[in-house]
């Protein structure tokens, strides 16, 4: 009797097992379908459109003309330049600051650590549009920042933060750094907490200075996290949109226009040219892939 029961159970399990496999595939295929529909399908479509020219629905096949046009398009070249200036200056500045703050705020004996951490992190809860507008008012010609700088005699005349091509770029860099330093610091802090304090003790006994400890222990231990944050920051910076749109309006002139903003303008502000806008879109994909690959290389090699 017990044998019979076992057999029945086994048969049932077989059916159940199949049922489970079927269910688990359903579980994973629902999001896959969405991701294919809203990420991969549009990207493939974009490539097809990028081989066409014309406005709205009337598209003519032109092959790689749109891609050739990129190299002669002054507005595109300026947008790429601006985006890379933000990338080259802002990301290292932010990562160094974030690392520095995280090491300072990780000291066991420091008082009010929580308060300091919260204050540095707080910008990360603001919406990009909101903080961009606040910064626009703070940095206006007769705004607070100019007043403070003049009060302490750092400058004699107000800086035209929004009207000068150089200072407008500096302003964007200051703004992004304010918004994201605390955010990145949290990643470093959580990684620092996983480092065995014994390593530092051993180093101290060996007579390593704080600076040596930082470069010889902290940085190597944090390398994976630094790599992670620098790649996510790179992807973010290459797509920079909300800040130039709301803080500087891309100006003065084209001084702070980014690639994203240029795509937006090509598609929704000027006479829509989806074919060319798609070609510009692909340039971002290419930049992201190249820069991520380089960072991956650099981040891994020195192990």
């Amino acid at each position: 009797m017990s044998d019979k029961k076992k057999k029945v159970k086994k048969k049932k399990m077989g059916k159940l097992q199949r049922n489970r496999v079927w269910m688990s595939w359903t579980f994973v295929l629902i999001p896959t379908l969405f991701i294919i529909t809203f990420y991969f399908y549009p990207m493939i479509q974009a490539f097809w459109i990028s081989l066409h020219t014309g406005t709205g629905v009337n598209l003519d096949f032109t092959g790689l003309d749109n891609y050739r046009r990129l190299f002669n398009d002054q507005a595109f070249i300026t947008a790429v330049k601006n985006t890379f200036i933000f990338f080259i200056f802002q990301i290292p500045l932010m990562i160094i600051l974030a690392l520095f703050f995280s090491v300072l705020l990780n000291q066991k004996t420091l008082h009010f650590k929580g308060v300091f951490r919260t204050l540095v992190f707080l910008p990360a809860i603001t919406s990009l549009v909101a903080y961009s507008l606040i910064f626009r008012y703070l940095f206006s010609n007769d705004g607070v920042v100019n007043q403070i700088l003049m009060f302490f005699n750092f400058i004699d005349d107000p800086i035209f933060w929004l009207g000068d091509p150089f200072w407008a770029k500096v302003l964007i860099i200051i703004a992004i750094t304010w918004r994201w330093t605390g955010y990145n610091m949290i990643f470093y802090l959580s990684a620092l907490q996983n480092i065995d304090p014994g390593i530092y003790e051993a180093a101290r006994i060996d007579g390593a200075s704080a600076v040596q400890q930082f470069f010889k222990i902290t940085i190597p231990m944090l390398r994976p996290v630094i790599l992670f944050t620098s790649i996510t920051s790179t992807i973010g910076t290459l797509q920079l949109f909300d800040e130039p749109m709301n803080l500087t309006g891309g100006g003065p002139g084209n001084a702070t226009t980014t690639i994203s903003q240029y795509i937006y303008n090509l598609s929704f502000e000027y006479t829509p040219n989806f074919g060319y806008a798609s070609a510009v879109s692909y340039s971002i994909v290419v930049f992201v892939l190249i820069l991520s690959a380089i960072q991956f290389r650099v981040g891994r090699e020195r192990k």
Partner: peptide
């Protein structure tokens, strides 16, 4: 795939 590249398609 950066979102900026997705906006048009």
């Amino acid at each position: 795939i950066p979102f900026a590249a997705l906006m048009v398609p």
